[in-house]
Write a protein that binds this DNA or RNA. Structure first.
Length: 925
RNA sequence: GCUCUGGUGGUGGAAUUGGUAGACACGCAGGACUUAAAAUCCUGUGAACAUUGCGUUCGUGCGGGUUCAAGUCCCGCCCGGAGUACCA
């Protein structure tokens, strides 16, 4: 019998499971290594070949580290709350828990086929009450904390209460929605509801009336990272802005630490950059412009140097003081504008970025430095959510202000001359001059300064005059944390006379109640409002649920102590496993999960619940595997199909065809006809007797008929081959199209490997002879290279190394135990089943996972000679063979001794030798 | 627009970080074994010229530069991919 992957793989998967080979236990005598995959959302479609890419890579590292003597934690679980299961429930009435369970079982079956070395005793599911108890618990901790900038960490809310009781609130330097100045006696007189309102401004999980992204089709609000280009990431539905009472997490309090923390972690530069941009720190100044009615208008600018160029001001349509400053004459027009702006969807607004709109409020502000009257406008190009929702407009040096000024015929005053230019007449300008490299003009005491110096001088000046101060602004917004959906974690909150109260820890988890319909109520309440008799001693629970990212924030901590019912994670387990050494997953989570998880980790660190303030030490984003779609070409208006290379002779439609009907771009005509009724009587125009399909690389998707399912490949080639092939495709981090052609090469390699130790009759056959130096060299070359490659996460080259090694050994007809035994260990992280089989055939009683990675021995790689490159007149190259590893001086000596060989080159006498560093010899003829 | 990434044979991709470019694999061509096919094995495969011989020249998106030596470093372009965007 030939190499039989089905038998071998089933046998060893069973063995690993029965012997609990991969169950991790804390073991202080060994160094730990924590390898984690981003856990999947178990969708109904199951796994396609793209999913396992990261899982295989992490499994290789996990197995490799075990062989290097590390105690490895390598768990897996499911991000089980999510919209698809709930949408399905709305349509069919089936409880999302049932759908989710089915999908999880399917995922598990598919994962098991691949021979991944997960410790399944630590599995988590975000929808499991034993798990979401701790999601709710974390929320309560956030609710009971505030962020103190002086301590630069989260502190218990009880501290804050003391500060208010003692009347020290004016000294408070804390993250908040609105600064509250409350005296001790006011505090004492406050009702419970009033106190609650004050504290709510500081809590890290807080309720507030906020402008949110409302998605009517999904019936819920969405966080900023769940909205792209004005539509929802899930489903692509339009999103509106709406003011609603919502739970939020005060992630902005951690903006600076989230930025700083990036410095110390080993993530790709591009991913760090995405997070930096998302946090969006900009240094600038806050300035106050006095209005005619005496009110102060706060603005933020990064270009304080252009203060003398301000010719008007603009408020966002949602700005609070808009009502009070609008004059009687302008009132109707402003109200019309605000109403119009509000009704525009986010998508419309973004689509019409270049269209300028706005209305004069009728009011004027006073320029704080030169006392001029400046008209105040309202326009939706100013966003309420950034800065203070109001700007000073400098049309000469800001393109948006410039467009606005031209539309409303407002003056443009140049105050910066870019380097290499002269002051110009602004009426002729076609665009503003936004460059920061230039010199200030027309600006009183800062005239003549460079932009950078001018900014510093202005800030000093406004601080001195108390009209403003230097500040830092962040683009990052607080994370909206409630969803008006069913399939999510309930908030551990009830309302007593309208005041939100948390459940006690021993009342957790608050179970998700069953309901009959998963839609919002007739009055627009979230689905949980349908739960009958669901209340806390008669007091209503919060009817929102938590968003998708809630369950993944601290899941990596839960894996350390999954089955602990007393704590999120015991101190001991946390101290041992610390944080994730290697995290592998897609980059699509850059501004969502990966940011929230860092934030929650920093918070849990602050309150002493975990020992590291960064969750993921090293992160690798595996590339997407794209599909390779196949096409047939139908001649217009017929049911006739023309082969790829002849299609230009006809007018054709291009149709996707299922890739399972295509082999090597050749269409299986019979199966194509049977595929769908419309093709039953299809006719073909062939080339060379075949129908050749066209192809294109696209996203892998069911609707494009290009999904490669791993199950079929495992069945045909085996998991080991699939594992090797997915790694062989190319660098892990790179996106690449899936192409099954190459799998044959890897499959050949595996069979060749198996052949090494089987004779012609397929009987196991190894030799106890001592290995030759040549054989040892082949082995040790592979050990050295594979070790280096794994440490660099460059798995594709390791596979090549194995191929070279096995080719060499085949050539040498080497079936020696002395070579095969270490080779089995070396290959086992990549192809664990066949390696384990060989290991046991060699007579070892324990699993290969308990073996040690073969030690590389340099002596087998020593070459006796080495080709030293010789450059002649700096041009042509020649080589002299010299002993390896000899010092520079010795090399020079050797060359001189061998000089007779080199006396004539190209029939010309050698004049002299020049020795330059790095074993190079230059010869002048 | 800004930021990050890449650009190497027909294809996927290697290259010890400045030292013989194209490892390994796919594909293709030729051959062996077969009645035949599959499977397997061997040979060739960057381009052009030379092919009776070891060959010669050009080649890592384009143009310059540094160096004895550049796919790799520097300057200026061109093209692709990703992220982000009325962010004041």
């Amino acid at each position: 019998m030939d190499y039989n992957h089905i038998e071998i793989e089933q046998k060893w998967q069973k063995y690993w499971q029965n012997h609990n080979i991969f169950v991790a236990k804390e073991d202080k005598t060994k160094p730990k290594y924590y390898v984690l995959d981003m856990f999947p959302y178990p969708s109904g479609a199951g796994l396609h070949v793209g999913h396992p890419l990261g899982y295989i890579a992490s499994d290789i590292v996990a197995r490799y580290k075990r062989l290097r003597g590390f105690n490895v934690l390598h768990p897996m679980g499911y991000d089980a709350y999510g919209l698809p299961a709930e949408q399905y429930a709305i349509q069919t009435g089936q409880h999302p828990a049932i759908t989710t369970e089915q999908n999880i079982n399917r995922y598990r079956r598919q994962l098991d086929l691949l021979g991944l070395s997960y410790d399944w005793t630590r599995e988590v599911r975000t929808c499991d009450p034993h798990y979401y108890k701790w999601t709710q618990w974390t929320f309560i901790q956030l609710f009971n904390s505030y962020y103190c900038y002086d301590a630069n960490k989260a502190l218990p809310i009880s501290n804050l209460i003391k500060i208010f009781e003692n009347g020290h609130s004016s000294e408070l330097n804390a993250a908040c929605g609105k600064k509250m100045d409350v005296t001790a006696s006011q505090w004492a007189d406050f009702s419970e509801a009033e106190r609650s309102n004050v504290l709510m401004n500081y809590r890290l999980a807080y309720l507030s009336e906020a402008t949110v992204n409302w998605c009517p089709q999904l019936g819920t609000v969405l966080a900023n990272d769940e909205v792209v280009n004005g539509v929802s990431v899930r489903g692509g539905f339009p999103v509106e802005r709406k003011s609603m009472q919502q739970w939020s997490l005060r992630i902005t309090a951690y903006a600076e630490r989230l930025l700083e923390g990036l410095e110390g972690i080993d993530w790709s530069e591009s991913l760090k950059e995405i997070q930096r941009n998302w946090i969006g720190r900009s240094r600038g100044a806050t300035l106050f412009f006095e209005l005619e009615n005496g009110e102060k208008l706060e603005i933020f600018t990064t270009r304080a140097d252009t203060l003398f160029g301000v010719t008007f001001m603009v408020l966002a349509p949602e700005h609070k003081i808009l009502d009070s400053i609008t004059t009687e004459e302008q009132k109707a027009e402003v109200e019309r504008y605000v109403a119009w702006a509000k009704n525009r969807s986010e998508r419309e607004r973004l689509a019409e970025v270049k269209a300028v709109s706005g209305v004069f409020t009728g009011s004027y502000a006073i320029h704080p430095l030169n006392g001029q009257k400046i008209p105040v406008y309202v326009s939706d190009y100013v966003l309420v959510t950034y800065g203070s929702g109001a700007i000073m407009a400098v049309p000469a040096h800001d393109s948006r202000d410039f467009a606005f000024a031209r539309k409303f015929s407002l003056p443009v005053v140049q105050v910066v001359v870019p380097d290499g230019e002269k002051e110009e007449d602004t009426t002729a300008w076609q665009e503003s001059k936004d460059s920061k490299n230039g010199t200030i003009i027309n600006s009183g005491f800062i005239t003549g300064l460079k932009v950078k110096d001018a900014i510093a001088k202005i800030i000093d000046y406004i601080e001195e005059k108390h009209i403003g101060y230097g500040t830092t602004n962040y683009r990052l917004r607080d994370a909206i944390f409630s969803r008006q959906r069913y399939w999510g974690e309930p908030f551990p909150i009830y309302y007593e006379n309208g005041v939100p109260k948390t459940l006690n820890e021993d009342e957790l988890p608050l179970l998700l109640p069953n309901i009959e319909t998963y839609l919002p109520t007739e009055s627009g309440e979230p689905p949980l409002a349908r739960a009958k008799g669901w209340n806390h001693n008669g007091m209503p629970y919060d009817h929102n649920t938590m968003p998708g990212f809630a369950g993944s924030n601290a899941y990596y901590i839960r894996y350390m102590d999954t089955n602990n019912d007393k704590e999120l994670c015991s101190k001991e387990a946390n101290a041992y496993w610390q944080n994730v050494d290697l995290y592998i997953g897609g980059s699509e989570h850059a501004t969502g999960h990966l940011l929230y998880s860092r934030f929650i980790t920093k918070f849990l660190f602050d309150i002493g619940k975990c020992c590291k303030d960064e969750p993921y030490r090293k992160l690798i984003n595996q590339g997407m595997i794209q599909g390779r779609s196949s096409f047939v070409y139908r001649i217009n208006g017929t049911n006739k199909y023309v082969s790829y290379n002849l299609k230009n002779q006809y007018a054709t439609d291009t149709l996707h065809v299922d890739i399972s009907l295509v082999d090597n771009d050749v269409l299986d005509l019979e199966r194509f006809k049977q595929w769908r009724a419309e093709f039953n009587d299809a006719e073909f125009i062939l080339e060379d007797g075949k129908y050749i399909c066209g192809c294109e690389v696209e996203k892998m998707s069911k609707s494009l008929f290009n999904v490669q399912n791993p199950d079929m490949l495992v069945e045909r080639y085996g998991a080991d081959t699939l594992r090797l092939y997915e790694m062989f495709l190319g660098p892990l981090e790179q996106s690449k199209p899936w192409d099954t052609k190459g799998i044959e090469g890897v499959s050949r390699f595996i069979r060749k490997f198996w052949r090494l130790y089987h004779d012609r009759d397929n009987a196991f056959c190894v030799s106890d002879e001592a290995a030759s130096k040549e054989e040892m060299t082949a082995l040790h070359k592979a050990i050295k290279k594979v070790e280096e490659d794994i440490e660099k996460f460059s798995f594709n080259t390791s596979v090549s190394t194995f191929m070279v090694c096995v080719n060499e050994l085949t050539e040498l007809k080497c079936n020696k135990r002395e070579i095969l035994s270490p080779l089995a260990v070396l290959i086992s992280p990549f192809a664990p089943h066949i390696a384990e089989e060989l290991w046991s055939l060699l007579g070892n009683e324990t699993s290969i996972s308990y073996a040690y990675f073969p030690k590389f021995d340099n002596k087998f790689l020593e070459q006796t000679t080495f080709n030293y490159p010789v450059s002649i007149n700096g041009k042509t190259r020649a080589f002299i063979e010299l002993g390896v590893d000899i010092a520079q001086a010795e090399a020079e000596k050797a060359v001189m001794e061998n000089a007779s060989v080199l006396k004539f080159i190209d029939n010309k006498p050698v004049k002299r030798f020049i020795f330059v560093p790095k074993r190079i010899i230059n010869i002048v003829i």
